[in-house]
Design a protein around this nucleic acid. Structure first.
Lengths: 338, 338
DNA sequence: GTCTGGCACTCGCAGTGGTTGAGTGCCAGG
DNA sequence: CCTGGCACTCAACCACTGCGAGTGCCAGAC
């Protein structure tokens, strides 16, 4: 096991490196941090830390930089989450409160996160599967053509065309609409299937086919991954990435365009608390030199979607984690209110 | 006026520079293009072209590169639009045909454009203002709270909350819904205001306030710039920009995040035909080293929105223009069909 | 007039070599 | 176990140089 001081040395290295973006040497360390020991001692500690794989040298006669493993230890054991200051909190709240609809909430969240963390922000749209139905609307567009509109408690609207096997009268539409709503309004998506199971029985034989079609379309909509949309922003922050630009940035931009990749990335994060994936911990190759800080957010107590940021492994973890957590919290509030 | 040969020299310079990304000298020019004259002659022509501001030298003893003015002349007079080949066309069609809804059409278009041109693609969502209303839906969420849902012929759905000045009964909601639809369904957005003007008169005095509120919300939704959304993609192609990376790319990324900027950019393009804005012709500073190739597209004969690409001024104009035009054409078809 | 070959000149670029200094590892002594 | 000292390493920096692509200009040919 590493001694207390060695951990402190590691912490100091991470902090300095994050600040200066330059390999940090033993002398500079003792000067900037009151470790109470001489550079020589620090050198020994560094050698030990390198031995264990927490830090590395870019080349001989250069200082040390943390490895992914080093950052991992730092995040897990050496650093907490830096809470936002009062003014920051108020700014967040103000910024989000002006939103007029769901798209706007997500758009503002992305901007906010990108600005606060000065990194690339990724926000997943609130997922349908964990939220509740606010209203189901059924419109007759043509005798055998309906439009199904689903409105969720997060303000999301999904619409689907339904081609009926047989003509379906206006009264039947109204009837079905009323029955549907009385059963599912306010209910969680996951409960809907059992709630509507016996609905066709209430209708005339000739209409049952259509009712079933509508119901299956509704159920499809509920589980559809389609809702797994996300928005990203702050890509301009990638330019602060490092010196060895194009090679680092290219795969990241590519990964960011693959929504599937990002969704998987966010999906892997645990539901509660801030999740940090560092460098090679990310499955996707293009993101091997980035860290992803993500967290779930939701309108009620539980998470309905994830949001997070993507940045260089050399990032201010406590600050980023704090910002991500705070934003998630306030977005949750906003969603609950609307 | 410039002689025919000098124009050919300019064309050759543009083509070579676009191909090699390196300043092109007189000797290399005569070798690669059968101009039928010696390097010395070309040098004289180059001097003349430089005098007129069509080309420039990065530094003494280097070759020439085209200026914005040079590209402009090239695009206007020296190069046509390169039509897509048969296989390319089929590929475009195949790729777009699989789309399931409007979002998907736009998303696919962006990907396609980015891939074809190897540049950043920007696609504006079909604008509401020129399309027609398919259906208006009104839902009662609470006694004095309505939700207004607008469905367009392009498959777009917009929803708005309406807070009523007074409680509004279910029957009144149904009545308003029916009257609204009978008046505006199938109509063009621009006609809606006059069509609903006298609607409040048909209601009881106590309900008129609410009806007016609903109507004004509807009209707002129709003109809202909010619908002026767009999607961008292919940002990874920015890495092919040039050598002097971070400085060039940063402002571009920033500009791309400002949807307002992009919308204005696209808006400036003329409705018919491919528009090319080169370098400093773009109002936005960050885009001074990029060119924007854009074109209108639409479901009927007329344009309902724009799409285009953003790339370095040093781009393959004929090819890019061809790709942009072809994609616009096919997207229009797809939209008309659905 | 227009084109051409020749020639002197410019200047960025790549390669060389020397110097500097931050940083290291190791060791002997407190 | 810590410390100061010491020799060593090596990237980064700088000045210098030679090379060559490219230019402008001019005198002569067609």
């Amino acid at each position: 096991m590493l001694s207390e001081r060695r951990l402190q040395v590691l912490r100091a290295i991470v902090q300095d490196y994050v600040g200066t973006e330059e390999p940090v040497g033993s002398k500079a360390l003792t000067e900037r941090h009151a470790l109470g020991v001489s550079p020589a001692t620090v050198r020994n500690d560094m050698a030990a830390l390198e031995e264990e794989g927490f830090i590395a040298q870019p080349h001989t006669s250069a200082g040390r930089i943390p490895t992914d493993k080093g950052y991992r230890l730092f995040v897990d054991k050496l650093a907490g989450v830096k809470p936002m200051t009062g003014p920051e909190r108020r700014a967040i709240q103000n910024f989000l409160e002006g939103a007029v609809d769901l798209d706007d909430v997500v758009a503002r969240t992305v901007r906010l996160l990108a600005q606060l963390t000065r990194q690339v922000a990724v926000v997943q749209y609130p997922s349908l599967t964990r939220s509740t139905v606010r209203h189901v609307e059924l419109l007759s567009l043509a005798p055998a053509r309906l439009m199904l509109v689903l409105i969720t408690d997060t303000g999301r609207v999904e619409q689907r065309m339904v081609d009926c096997p047989a003509p379906f009268g206006e009264t039947a539409v109204a009837d079905l609409r009323a029955r549907l709503n009385s059963r599912v309004a306010g209910r969680r998506f996951t409960d809907v299937p059992t709630l509507v199971e016996d609905l066709p029985d209430a209708f005339e034989a000739e209409d049952r086919g259509t009712v079933s079609t509508v119901l299956s379309t509704l159920l499809e909509t509920l589980v559809e991954e389609n809702e797994e949309r996300l928005m990203i922003g702050g890509t301009a922050n990638l330019t602060r990435f490092g010196h060895d630009f194009p090679l680092t940035i290219r795969p990241v931009l590519e990964a960011l365009e693959e929504q599937v990749v990002l969704l998987k990335l966010l999906g892997e994060a645990k539901d509660a608390g801030v999740t940090v994936r560092i460098g090679h911990e990310n499955a996707h190759e293009g993101l091997n030199s980035t860290s992803v800080v993500s967290v779930g957010y939701g309108s009620g107590g539980e998470a309905v979607a994830k949001l997070g940021v993507v940045g260089p492994t050399r990032m201010d973890y406590p600050g980023t984690m704090g910002a991500v957590r705070a934003v998630a919290r306030y977005v949750g509030q906003i969603l609950a209110e609307s």
